[in-house]
Protein backbone atom coordinates (compact mmCIF):
# COMPACT_ATOMS: atom_id res chain seq x y z
CA UNK A 1 0.00 0.00 0.00
CA UNK A 2 2.79 2.42 0.96
CA UNK A 3 4.54 1.68 -2.32
CA UNK A 4 1.35 2.33 -4.19
CA UNK A 5 0.90 5.73 -2.57
CA UNK A 6 4.53 6.63 -3.18
CA UNK A 7 4.13 5.64 -6.82
CA UNK A 8 1.15 7.91 -7.09
CA UNK A 9 3.00 10.79 -5.45
CA UNK A 10 5.88 10.33 -7.89
CA UNK A 11 3.43 10.74 -10.76
CA UNK A 12 1.92 13.74 -9.02
CA UNK A 13 5.35 15.37 -8.66
CA UNK A 14 6.18 14.84 -12.33
CA UNK A 15 2.75 15.99 -13.49
CA UNK A 16 3.06 19.09 -11.31
CA UNK A 17 6.44 19.98 -12.80
CA UNK A 18 5.18 19.46 -16.35
CA UNK A 19 2.06 21.48 -15.59
CA UNK A 20 4.07 24.47 -14.33
CA UNK A 21 6.17 24.41 -17.47
CA UNK A 22 3.05 24.65 -19.60
CA UNK A 23 1.43 27.09 -17.20
CA UNK A 24 4.01 29.85 -17.68
CA UNK A 25 3.30 30.35 -21.39
CA UNK A 26 -0.42 29.80 -20.75
CA UNK A 27 -0.40 32.57 -18.13
CA UNK A 28 0.86 34.89 -20.85
CA UNK A 29 -1.83 33.69 -23.24
CA UNK A 30 0.06 31.01 -25.18
CA UNK A 31 -1.19 27.45 -25.43
CA UNK A 32 1.68 24.99 -25.66
CA UNK A 33 0.54 21.54 -26.78
CA UNK A 34 4.13 20.39 -27.14
CA UNK A 35 4.89 19.26 -23.60
CA UNK A 36 5.83 15.77 -24.79
CA UNK A 37 8.51 17.27 -27.04
CA UNK A 38 10.25 19.06 -24.19
CA UNK A 39 9.88 16.05 -21.89
CA UNK A 40 11.56 13.94 -24.57
CA UNK A 41 14.37 16.47 -24.95
CA UNK A 42 14.98 16.70 -21.20
CA UNK A 43 14.72 12.96 -20.56
CA UNK A 44 16.97 11.90 -23.42
CA UNK A 45 19.52 14.66 -22.84
CA UNK A 46 19.82 13.72 -19.17
CA UNK A 47 20.01 9.99 -19.91
CA UNK A 48 22.63 10.40 -22.62
CA UNK A 49 24.79 12.81 -20.61
CA UNK A 50 24.61 10.54 -17.60
CA UNK A 51 25.28 7.21 -19.28
CA UNK A 52 28.84 5.94 -19.08
CA UNK A 53 30.64 5.90 -22.45
CA UNK A 54 31.42 2.18 -22.13
CA UNK A 55 27.87 0.86 -22.01
CA UNK A 56 25.32 0.61 -24.81
CA UNK A 57 24.26 2.93 -26.44
CA UNK A 58 26.82 5.09 -24.63
CA UNK A 59 26.98 8.67 -23.42
CA UNK A 60 29.20 11.16 -21.63
CA UNK A 61 29.22 9.66 -18.16
CA UNK A 62 28.50 12.92 -16.33
CA UNK A 63 27.20 12.68 -12.77
CA UNK A 64 23.52 13.41 -12.22
CA UNK A 65 24.18 16.83 -10.66
CA UNK A 66 25.55 17.86 -14.03
CA UNK A 67 23.37 15.83 -16.36
CA UNK A 68 20.07 17.19 -15.04
CA UNK A 69 21.00 20.91 -15.17
CA UNK A 70 22.56 20.42 -18.60
CA UNK A 71 19.38 18.72 -19.82
CA UNK A 72 17.38 21.66 -18.47
CA UNK A 73 19.63 24.11 -20.29
CA UNK A 74 19.33 22.06 -23.45
CA UNK A 75 15.51 22.08 -23.29
CA UNK A 76 15.60 25.83 -22.57
CA UNK A 77 17.89 26.46 -25.54
CA UNK A 78 15.66 24.51 -27.90
CA UNK A 79 12.62 26.24 -26.41
CA UNK A 80 14.22 29.62 -26.97
CA UNK A 81 15.21 28.87 -30.56
CA UNK A 82 11.79 27.55 -31.57
CA UNK A 83 9.87 30.14 -29.54
CA UNK A 84 10.95 32.89 -31.87
CA UNK A 85 9.21 31.47 -34.97
CA UNK A 86 6.44 29.68 -33.05
CA UNK A 87 5.39 32.76 -31.12
CA UNK A 88 4.77 34.56 -34.37
CA UNK A 89 1.75 32.27 -34.72
CA UNK A 90 -1.48 32.87 -32.84
CA UNK A 91 -4.38 30.96 -31.37
CA UNK A 92 -5.10 27.66 -33.07
CA UNK A 93 -1.95 28.03 -35.15
CA UNK A 94 0.22 28.10 -32.08
CA UNK A 95 -1.49 25.05 -30.60
CA UNK A 96 -0.78 23.22 -33.85
CA UNK A 97 2.79 24.50 -34.18
CA UNK A 98 3.78 23.34 -30.69
CA UNK A 99 2.03 20.05 -31.33
CA UNK A 100 3.91 19.60 -34.63
CA UNK A 101 7.16 20.44 -32.86
CA UNK A 102 6.60 17.66 -30.33
CA UNK A 103 5.86 15.18 -33.11
CA UNK A 104 9.03 16.17 -35.00
CA UNK A 105 11.11 15.71 -31.84
CA UNK A 106 9.62 12.29 -31.19
CA UNK A 107 10.00 11.31 -34.87
CA UNK A 108 13.67 12.29 -34.80
CA UNK A 109 14.55 10.69 -31.47
CA UNK A 110 13.25 7.24 -32.42
CA UNK A 111 15.63 7.33 -35.37
CA UNK A 112 18.77 8.40 -33.52
CA UNK A 113 20.97 5.37 -32.94
CA UNK A 114 23.16 7.04 -30.31
CA UNK A 115 20.18 7.40 -27.96
CA UNK A 116 18.95 3.88 -28.54
CA UNK A 117 16.51 4.64 -31.39
CA UNK A 118 13.07 3.05 -30.93
CA UNK A 119 14.15 0.89 -28.00
CA UNK A 120 14.93 3.92 -25.82
CA UNK A 121 17.85 4.05 -23.41
CA UNK A 122 18.55 3.64 -19.70
CA UNK A 123 19.17 6.61 -17.43
CA UNK A 124 21.63 5.10 -15.00
CA UNK A 125 21.63 7.25 -11.85
CA UNK A 126 18.55 7.18 -9.66
CA UNK A 127 16.60 10.09 -8.18
CA UNK A 128 14.56 8.83 -5.25
CA UNK A 129 11.15 10.08 -4.21
CA UNK A 130 12.54 12.49 -1.61
CA UNK A 131 14.75 14.20 -4.18
CA UNK A 132 11.87 14.42 -6.59
CA UNK A 133 9.60 15.92 -3.94
CA UNK A 134 12.17 18.55 -2.96
CA UNK A 135 12.71 19.59 -6.56
CA UNK A 136 8.97 19.73 -7.16
CA UNK A 137 8.51 22.02 -4.17
CA UNK A 138 11.32 24.22 -5.49
CA UNK A 139 9.65 24.42 -8.91
CA UNK A 140 6.30 25.38 -7.38
CA UNK A 141 7.99 28.00 -5.19
CA UNK A 142 9.95 29.36 -8.14
CA UNK A 143 6.81 29.71 -10.30
CA UNK A 144 4.92 31.28 -7.43
CA UNK A 145 7.74 33.77 -7.00
CA UNK A 146 7.92 34.42 -10.75
CA UNK A 147 4.20 35.16 -10.96
CA UNK A 148 4.51 37.66 -8.12
CA UNK A 149 7.25 39.67 -9.85
CA UNK A 150 6.85 42.54 -12.25
CA UNK A 151 7.70 40.05 -15.00
CA UNK A 152 4.72 37.96 -13.80
CA UNK A 153 2.56 41.05 -13.92
CA UNK A 154 3.75 41.66 -17.47
CA UNK A 155 2.90 38.05 -18.39
CA UNK A 156 -0.61 38.33 -17.02
CA UNK A 157 -1.08 41.69 -18.74
CA UNK A 158 -0.01 40.21 -22.06
CA UNK A 159 -2.57 37.43 -21.46
CA UNK A 160 -5.35 39.93 -20.89
CA UNK A 161 -4.62 42.63 -23.47
CA UNK A 162 -1.47 42.64 -25.54
CA UNK A 163 -1.85 46.04 -27.13
CA UNK A 164 -2.56 47.86 -23.87
CA UNK A 165 0.39 46.08 -22.25
CA UNK A 166 2.55 47.42 -25.09
CA UNK A 167 1.29 50.96 -24.54
CA UNK A 168 2.41 50.76 -20.92
CA UNK A 169 5.90 49.78 -21.95
CA UNK A 170 5.72 45.98 -21.70
CA UNK A 171 7.93 44.28 -24.27
CA UNK A 172 5.28 41.77 -25.35
CA UNK A 173 7.56 39.71 -27.56
CA UNK A 174 10.32 39.41 -24.98
CA UNK A 175 7.77 38.51 -22.31
CA UNK A 176 6.28 35.75 -24.42
CA UNK A 177 9.66 34.36 -25.44
CA UNK A 178 10.84 34.39 -21.83
CA UNK A 179 7.69 32.68 -20.57
CA UNK A 180 7.90 30.02 -23.26
CA UNK A 181 11.64 29.42 -22.70
CA UNK A 182 11.41 29.18 -18.92
CA UNK A 183 8.42 26.89 -19.38
CA UNK A 184 10.41 24.69 -21.77
CA UNK A 185 13.22 24.48 -19.22
CA UNK A 186 10.81 23.39 -16.48
CA UNK A 187 9.15 20.75 -18.67
CA UNK A 188 12.65 19.57 -19.65
CA UNK A 189 13.50 19.31 -15.95
CA UNK A 190 10.42 17.14 -15.49
CA UNK A 191 11.59 14.91 -18.33
CA UNK A 192 15.10 14.60 -16.89
CA UNK A 193 13.66 13.67 -13.49
CA UNK A 194 11.33 11.15 -15.10
CA UNK A 195 14.33 9.50 -16.71
CA UNK A 196 16.41 9.43 -13.57
CA UNK A 197 13.57 8.19 -11.41
CA UNK A 198 12.40 5.35 -13.63
CA UNK A 199 15.94 4.82 -14.98
CA UNK A 200 14.68 4.32 -18.49
CA UNK A 201 13.53 6.70 -21.21
CA UNK A 202 11.44 5.75 -24.19
CA UNK A 203 10.05 8.28 -26.66
CA UNK A 204 6.86 6.29 -27.29
CA UNK A 205 5.78 6.99 -23.71
CA UNK A 206 5.96 10.75 -24.29
CA UNK A 207 3.10 10.96 -26.76
CA UNK A 208 0.35 13.31 -27.84
CA UNK A 209 -1.97 12.16 -25.08
CA UNK A 210 0.59 13.21 -22.48
CA UNK A 211 0.77 16.70 -24.01
CA UNK A 212 -3.01 16.88 -24.05
CA UNK A 213 -3.32 15.79 -20.42
CA UNK A 214 -0.76 18.30 -19.23
CA UNK A 215 -2.50 21.13 -21.05
CA UNK A 216 -5.74 19.97 -19.44
CA UNK A 217 -4.24 20.09 -15.92
CA UNK A 218 -3.25 23.69 -16.57
CA UNK A 219 -6.48 24.90 -18.16
CA UNK A 220 -8.67 23.12 -15.64
CA UNK A 221 -6.58 24.23 -12.70
CA UNK A 222 -6.80 27.80 -13.96
CA UNK A 223 -4.20 30.06 -15.55
CA UNK A 224 -4.91 33.17 -13.51
CA UNK A 225 -2.97 32.28 -10.38
CA UNK A 226 0.15 30.29 -9.63
CA UNK A 227 -1.95 27.75 -7.68
CA UNK A 228 -3.85 26.57 -10.74
CA UNK A 229 -1.38 24.00 -12.10
CA UNK A 230 -0.81 22.43 -8.69
CA UNK A 231 -4.54 22.05 -8.08
CA UNK A 232 -5.09 20.85 -11.65
CA UNK A 233 -2.32 18.27 -11.55
CA UNK A 234 -3.35 17.01 -8.11
CA UNK A 235 -6.99 16.84 -9.05
CA UNK A 236 -6.37 14.86 -12.18
CA UNK A 237 -3.68 12.60 -10.79
CA UNK A 238 -5.94 11.59 -7.94
CA UNK A 239 -9.32 11.41 -9.67
CA UNK A 240 -8.70 8.21 -11.66
CA UNK A 241 -7.16 6.67 -8.54
CA UNK A 242 -10.04 7.78 -6.38
CA UNK A 243 -12.46 6.21 -8.81
CA UNK A 244 -10.41 3.03 -8.76
CA UNK A 245 -10.48 3.06 -4.97
CA UNK A 246 -14.22 3.75 -5.03
CA UNK A 247 -14.73 0.85 -7.40
CA UNK A 248 -12.86 -1.48 -5.05
CA UNK A 249 -14.86 -0.20 -2.10
CA UNK A 250 -18.19 -0.68 -3.87
CA UNK A 251 -17.06 -4.05 -5.16
CA UNK A 252 -19.10 -6.45 -7.20
CA UNK A 253 -19.92 -6.13 -10.86
CA UNK A 254 -20.56 -2.38 -10.65
CA UNK A 255 -17.28 -1.76 -8.86
CA UNK A 256 -15.42 -3.66 -11.54
CA UNK A 257 -17.13 -1.65 -14.26
CA UNK A 258 -16.33 1.56 -12.45
CA UNK A 259 -12.64 0.66 -12.36
CA UNK A 260 -12.67 -0.35 -16.00
CA UNK A 261 -14.40 2.83 -17.12
CA UNK A 262 -12.69 5.20 -14.69
CA UNK A 263 -11.13 7.28 -17.48
CA UNK A 264 -14.57 7.69 -19.04
CA UNK A 265 -15.72 9.13 -15.73
CA UNK A 266 -12.60 11.26 -15.77
CA UNK A 267 -13.55 12.65 -19.19
CA UNK A 268 -17.08 13.37 -17.99
CA UNK A 269 -15.62 15.27 -15.04
CA UNK A 270 -13.51 17.36 -17.44
CA UNK A 271 -16.57 18.29 -19.50
CA UNK A 272 -18.61 19.08 -16.39
CA UNK A 273 -15.79 21.18 -14.93
CA UNK A 274 -15.81 23.31 -18.05
CA UNK A 275 -19.51 23.86 -17.54
CA UNK A 276 -19.15 24.72 -13.86
CA UNK A 277 -15.80 26.52 -13.71
CA UNK A 278 -14.83 27.59 -17.21
CA UNK A 279 -11.92 29.75 -16.10
CA UNK A 280 -10.38 26.93 -14.11
CA UNK A 281 -10.79 25.73 -10.54
CA UNK A 282 -8.65 28.47 -9.00
CA UNK A 283 -9.49 31.98 -10.16
CA UNK A 284 -8.50 35.38 -8.83
CA UNK A 285 -12.03 36.00 -7.68
CA UNK A 286 -12.07 32.71 -5.79
CA UNK A 287 -8.81 33.51 -3.97
CA UNK A 288 -10.07 37.00 -3.20
CA UNK A 289 -13.24 35.57 -1.74
CA UNK A 290 -11.39 33.00 0.34
CA UNK A 291 -9.01 35.59 1.73
CA UNK A 292 -11.66 38.20 2.48
CA UNK A 293 -13.69 35.56 4.27
CA UNK A 294 -10.67 34.69 6.34
CA UNK A 295 -10.01 38.36 7.08
CA UNK A 296 -13.61 38.88 8.05
CA UNK A 297 -13.61 35.73 10.12
CA UNK A 298 -10.48 36.75 12.05
CA UNK A 299 -11.87 39.87 13.77
CA UNK A 300 -15.12 38.07 14.41
CA UNK A 301 -13.23 35.31 16.17
CA UNK A 302 -11.28 37.85 18.21
CA UNK A 303 -14.41 39.39 19.65
Amino acid sequence: MGGEIEGLLVILCLNTIYAYGIFLPAASGQLNLGAAGFITLGAYAAAWLNMSPDSEPGGLGLPMVLSIPSAVLFAAAVGFVISVPILRTRGVYMVLATFAFAEVVSGLVINLEFVGAAAGMPAEDHVDFTGLLIITICVVAFCYYLMSTRFGLAMRSVHDDESVATLFGVNVRATRVAAFTIGAAIVGLGGALYGHHFNYVEAQGFNVLLSIFILLYVLLGGTQTAWGPLVGAAFFTFIPETIRWLGRWVGGEFGKELIEYRLVAFGIIIVMMMVLRPEGVVTRTLLERVFTLRRRAAPAAAE
Partner: peptide, 29 residues
Protein backbone atom coordinates in the same frame (compact mmCIF):
# COMPACT_ATOMS: atom_id res chain seq x y z
CA UNK B 1 -25.18 31.02 -23.78
CA UNK B 2 -23.55 31.34 -20.42
CA UNK B 3 -20.25 33.07 -21.04
CA UNK B 4 -20.61 35.10 -24.20
CA UNK B 5 -18.22 34.33 -26.98
CA UNK B 6 -16.98 30.86 -26.19
CA UNK B 7 -13.92 31.15 -28.36
CA UNK B 8 -12.49 33.80 -26.06
CA UNK B 9 -11.73 31.09 -23.56
CA UNK B 10 -10.18 27.74 -24.17
CA UNK B 11 -13.52 26.20 -23.22
CA UNK B 12 -14.56 24.36 -26.37
CA UNK B 13 -11.02 23.10 -26.89
CA UNK B 14 -10.84 21.64 -23.39
CA UNK B 15 -14.35 20.18 -23.50
CA UNK B 16 -13.61 18.57 -26.84
CA UNK B 17 -10.47 17.01 -25.36
CA UNK B 18 -12.69 15.75 -22.53
CA UNK B 19 -14.98 14.08 -25.06
CA UNK B 20 -11.98 12.56 -26.83
CA UNK B 21 -10.96 10.94 -23.54
CA UNK B 22 -14.52 9.75 -22.85
CA UNK B 23 -15.01 8.05 -26.21
CA UNK B 24 -11.57 6.49 -26.44
CA UNK B 25 -11.74 5.01 -22.99
CA UNK B 26 -15.27 3.84 -23.45
CA UNK B 27 -14.14 1.84 -26.46
CA UNK B 28 -11.12 0.54 -24.56
CA UNK B 29 -13.32 -0.41 -21.62
Amino acid sequence: AKYGDATEHALPLVSSLGFLIIFEHFVIG
